[in-house]
Amino acid sequence: MQVNMKVNGAEVSEEIEPRHLLVHFIRDQLGLTGTHWGCDTSNCGTCVVLIDGEPVKSCTQLAAMAGGHDVTTVEGLEVDGVLDPVQEGFMQCHGLQCGFCTPGMMLTARALLNADPDPSEDVIREAISGQICRCTGYSTIVRSIQWAANHETSVSLESAS
């Protein structure tokens, strides 16, 4: 079947098998390997992408179900060479070690900050609670997201200029 959707702002139109999962469509068919694929059982959250701005585990959605929707992957966070404040925060605060969980963590952080520009630590921890990090112990991830919250305007202003 034919599926049409927006991925990181660009229209894509592809022939797929209806049984294909969104995570494989994004990685194997679109070649966007920033979206990671881990547990395959909706538990780890490394496969999280945004569908119409909401974090969704892409190993547990069919590519066909995303048809007509807006999908954002980690590749879509950077715009014209300028990193998203969330990406900058993960660099500044050592929010990753091996980096396997990072794409999902950053997309959930982006969605959280869009809805709540000044989240408390508890709110941040709740937001990422469906995502597993084996390396950092989460504290630096929380700090990275707080860094992004504190730098939202300055970085966005820079990117606008």
Binding site: G45, V48, P55, T60, Q61, A127, S129, G130
Partner: peptide, 9 residues
């Protein structure tokens, strides 16, 4: 129930 990401769907 589940986690926030699962609850979105």
């Amino acid at each position: 129930i589940a986690d926030p990401t699962v609850r979105n769907r």
